[in-house]
Every structure is written in structure tokens, then in C-alpha cells.
Design a protein around this nucleic acid. Structure first.
Lengths: 192, 192
DNA sequence: TCAGAAGCTGACCGATCGGACAGTTCGGGG
DNA sequence: CCCCGAACTGTCCGATCGGTCAGCTTCTGA
């Protein structure tokens, strides 16, 4: 239990950084903070990584890659299939990379400029276009944006808009299906 | 047109700070940045305000007060009325204080700890309980959270999740009604 | 006319940031 | 036994942060 899921010092650093970035933000986390969490010196971090940005990049790499993969996979689907697959895939992906998403969204304005976000942007843009294509009106586009923006925020780790008095105590699968059904209802998809 | 809606140097400082906080975040904005935008020295800011935090507090004060007012007003309504009034009031309020909301949400983890956010938290909690009371299942709670989290993000100024290739070019009133109807559909309210 | 307050500036302060670097510890192969 | 490279530390650096302070204009009212 004391051992992390990642192995080695590099893994410990990535775990600690992920925890701190998600909790206090990228800007709000110093190398000293990470070093203190790991139990090593600040210089040790810079021995294993090229810098603070490199830690963030390696941290987000799997999530960014997964989003890009889903993006590519959705490109070859038909109109109606795209919508359901997109919603399910999006919800699933965000939930699988909760921590990374939390880090990504922690400092939205600055991170939108970050190169690592380009893949997620492309994915979101495509999803948005597919979902909004059902109707020419801006209403569909807004509904799609609602889903795109609310799902990640809800999946943020302890960071919820409007701190609830009691947290939602349900399993991942149930939350996943609830989110999918709610999103389908928002977008007026079939079965809603 | 060159004159701000606020009068005097204090108003210019608040306007510039609001713009910069919303664009680059509270942490990402230095007093030098604000001073540069206003066209005065950094010391001038600290002559008019007690510090950087004081600028933020005065900036958010009207929004915080408005949220607290809506919170109090919703406390005296019946079950069914609460829901529609809550949605409409919430959407309306967020849109009226777009810039303040953008600042508020720019650094979510840190700002949740901020005293100024307490009023908004209370408001959100009450709204959440009222909306989720329709059903004991966590589904209603999640749907309510979706609305609570997505509406502010969509209303963020140039900061959207998934940068759109083209911005939504509709008037405030239309966006307001679209958001309200989409939220009602998400929550399975009548008329959806 | 002039005293004094208001408004503002340039210079400076301590703290902290990300990062650089020389030196130290230490386990394993020749 | 020696030594080499990986892992790591303590220390220092320049930049930047929020904030302080003495002093300089500029306006105003007695």
C-alpha cells in the first residue's frame, strides 16, 4: 500500500506531481512542494526531468494520446453512430483520465495555450461539430457545449462547482451511465 | 467610448484587473500587468487598494452579493416553482456577471478556499438540493451538477472547453433562453 | 499666496520562483 | 581494491512576485 502503482523514483515524482497539480494547480505547485511530497530534494526532480513543464507533459501524455485516438476512431463513423459513440467515448475517456483532466482544467486559460492541449482541442472540436450537426440552430451547439464542459468538471476529483454537503457515493460504472444518459437527454438524442 | 463605464482611476483599475484576471487568471496576472494596462505605476494600484486580494474582492463583490440575494429569494418558493425559478435565475445571474464568473472559475481549486466564494457555494448547494429533490436517485443530482457546472463554463468569456473554430454569434437573450431550455431538458423538467 | 492634502512615481525590500552546478554517496563490475 | 557512473544533495543564481516608502507634482481652499 505504501508503494505507488508506478515503479521507481520517476513514477513517485509523477504521482506526487499529479496529486499536487490537481489539488493546487500547476502554477500553485512549486518544485519544492513536489520534492517535499516525494521526500527528496528539488534538484532530484530536475535530475529526472528537464523541468517543471516536462513533468506536466509526461503526466498528461497518456491522456492526450487517448483523446487523439478517440478522435481518430470517431472520424470513420456514420452520422447517428457518431453521436452515441462520441458521448459514450467522451464520458468514458474523461473518467478514465480523471486526474489528468483535473490537471488540464485546473488552469483553463493558460492551458488552452499549451501545446499539449492541442490534441484535446481537436477532439473537442470534432465532437462539437458532430453533435451540433443535428440542427443548424445554435441551440444544438450550446447543448453540445454543455455536455463538453460539464462532464469534465463533474469528473474533477474533489473539485466540484458548488461544493456539495455530501459527495456522490456511487460507483464509476453507475456514474458513467448516468452521465451518458443525462448527456443524451441534454442533446435530445434517441432514448432520452 | 474611450471612457470606461466606471468612473475615475479606481474604476479603470477594476476594469483592467477584471479583464486580465479573466484572461490570464488571478495568479497569472501581476500588479505590473494591471498597471501597464491602466497606464500607471504599480504603486498607484496600492495607493487605491489595500493589495491584490482587495482588488479581487471588490471586483467580485457585486456578483457575490447577487448570488446571495438569489439564494435568499429561492428559499421561500414552492417545490415546482423553485426548479424553474432556480434554473432561470441561475442562468440569468451567471450571464449578468460573466466577467466575474470567469474570474471566479479561472482557478477553481484555489478559489473554492476563498472566503468570497462562500456565498456562491451556499447558493449552488441549495440549487443542487432543490433540483435533486425530484428524485432520490443520484441521476438527478448528477443532472443538476451538469447544469451547475456547464452553464458558467459556457458563459466564460473567450474561455471555452474545446476551442470552437467559430464562436457562437447569438445575442445574450437568445443564448439565455437556449441555456434555460437545454438545462430544463437535462433535468427532465416540464416543457423539455 | 501658500499650506496641505490627494494622487502618483521610482527605487527598493524580502520572499519565492524555476533552474544550474559542483560536489558527495554508493553499489557493482573489472 | 579501485573506480566509474547513476542517483542525489546543498548551494547559489537571476527573475519576478506583492508590497513599502520617501519624495515629487498638482490641485484646492483659506
Amino acid at each position: 500500500m505504501s508503494r505507488s502503482t508506478r515503479s521507481g523514483t520517476r513514477g513517485e515524482i509523477l504521482d506526487a506531481a499529479a496529486r499536487l497539480f490537481a489539488a493546487t494547480g500547476f502554477k500553485g505547485t512549486s518544485l519544492q512542494d513536489i520534492a517535499g511530497e516525494v521526500g527528496c530534494s528539488k534538484a532530484a526532480l530536475l535530475y529526472h526531468f528537464d523541468g517543471k513543464d516536462a513533468i506536466l507533459a509526461e503526466l498528461l501524455a497518456p491522456a492526450v494520446e487517448a483523446f487523439a485516438t478517440l478522435d481518430a476512431r470517431l472520424a470513420g463513423l456514420g452520422d447517428d453512430d457518431v453521436q452515441l459513440a462520441a458521448v459514450e467515448g467522451y464520458v468514458d475517456l474523461v473518467m478514465r483520465f480523471r486526474r489528468e483532466v483535473t490537471v488540464l482544467y485546473d488552469d483553463i486559460p493558460a492551458l488552452l495555450q499549451r501545446p499539449a492541449f492541442a490534441g484535446v482541442q481537436g477532439m473537442s472540436d470534432r465532437l462539437l461539430d458532430a453533435l451540433a450537426a443535428r440542427s443548424p440552430a445554435p441551440a444544438a451547439r450550446v447543448a453540445a457545449l454543455m455536455v463538453l464542459s460539464s462532464v469534465p468538471v463533474i469528473c474533477m476529483e474533489p473539485i466540484e462547482i458548488g461544493v456539495r454537503t455530501e459527495p456522490i457515493v456511487i460507483g464509476d460504472d453507475e456514474l458513467r451511465s448516468i452521465l451518458t444518459r443525462s448527456a443524451a437527454r441534454t442533446l435530445d438524442l434517441r432514448g432520452a
